[in-house]
Design a protein around this nucleic acid. Structure first.
Lengths: 218, 218
DNA sequence: GTATGATTCAAATGATCGTTTCAATTTTAT
DNA sequence: ATAAAATTGAAACGATCATTTGAATCATAC
């Protein structure tokens, strides 16, 4: 069966990219883990980079589709008025956490996406950034509508903060859970904690203008 | 001069690790950039990994020292009572942003630290994680004191969110600034925006318990 | 059953990786 | 100045990298 090899490669690559990152994972690591021939990756995908793109496509595409659908639904329900900030934050975050909960045990998708947000270099990132950009743009305008007091540029930055919290959580949640027993949480609880944190952060009053010579906030 | 070579290697490595990450940067990249012999890195530092540790040590140590000093100062001023959350957040974040503002133009330190938080694999990370852990622990107890209504475990998670926002901002601030003219901000303004966001997020009410079968928050 | 295309396989390609070697050179101490 | 130590230099080491090759094997269709 042909699709079997492709699937096994995608699964192995997803796992390894998530655990060790893209540059640190070799073709041989992938093909050994997938138990396929070394040449299979280049045969089926063309190159290592193309494999990464395929992995991201497979994992991120349904998440982003889900995000957009939830936003559609929220805006439909709200009629013409603004959606609550918390609902927007939850609609943006839940599609990822849900895949975590539904998955077996390891949050590989989350780690992978976390890494992609954090690790991939500029030029490679540009190849699949557009997929994220569409989501980003839609949510950006929605947030702007829901936060009329906050300048558009600041909303932009706050969304960067939001994505950062999410990505970092994806990457390190497993080790955090393993460290402090008091911090043990179910995925749903972590989502709720992050929603609470990010919703309040997004809703903060507009920052006061900074009047400083040129050196931070000493 | 001996120290000159070491310095040039450290500078080049800092720059390249920040731009391309640790695994993607080769010894030859570093020695070419530093204009020193290829063997110089192994002679002066022992290995590539040891060089990374030295780079982190040089850039992160003063930042973490600064963080602890500011916390000391805040707790001293507060006497026995709790420090304000916003002050804690600012004390934690400002030492990094300040180095950005004071630096020439490129936020390489920030990108580097951002990457270290996000990219380095488990075992290598453990080698210098203790340095961060000390800071993390001190701020964790301080935050717990200032947030009496929030369970300790949740404070732990919120600090993870905070670090994530910071790390992600460090990594992507440059590209964000380059993208949307409305999002153009001075480093001091970005710090203030992040302080506002994170302080309100940290101060959010304690999350309601989640009662769900085992599948996210649909 | 035989031809055709898709897939797998073992092996090799050239490039690049981190590290080592050892002689040449420079610095330091006497 | 001379001996000793520290540093630099050019070259090579073996290992591993992503990718390619061409024959072997498989599936499918006629």
């Amino acid at each position: 069966m042909a699709t079997d090899t492709k699937h096994r490669i995608l699964d192995a690559a997803e796992q390894l990219f998530a655990d060790y990152g893209f540059p640190a994972t070799s073709m041989r690591d992938i093909t050994n883990e997938a138990d396929v021939n070394l040449a299979a990756v280049n045969y089926h995908f063309g190159s290592k980079e193309a494999l990464l793109i395929a992995v991201v496509e497979r994992t991120a595409a349904p998440i982003n589709r889900d995000r957009l659908e939830r936003l559609d639904e929220l805006e439909r329900k709200a009629g013409g008025s603004a959606v609550s900030v918390e609902a927007l934050v939850r609609a943006f975050l839940a599609p990822m956490f849900e895949r975590w909960s539904l998955g077996k045990s390891e949050p590989k998708i989350l780690k992978l996406v976390g890494r992609i947000h954090a690790e991939v270099d500029q030029d490679l990132r540009a190849k699949f950034i557009r997929q994220f950009d569409a989501v980003f743009a839609r949510y950006s305008t929605a947030f702007q509508r829901s936060l009329p007091g906050v300048p558009a540029g600041d909303v932009h930055w706050r969304m960067l903060f939001l994505v950062g919290s999410m990505a970092h959580t994806m990457t390190w949640a497993a080790s955090i859970i393993g460290t402090d027993p008091r911090a043990r949480r179910e995925p749903g609880e972590i989502l709720e904690a992050l929603v609470q944190f990010a919703a309040d952060g997004m809703s903060a009053p507009a920052p006061k203008p900074v009047a400083m010579p040129a050196g931070g906030a000493r």
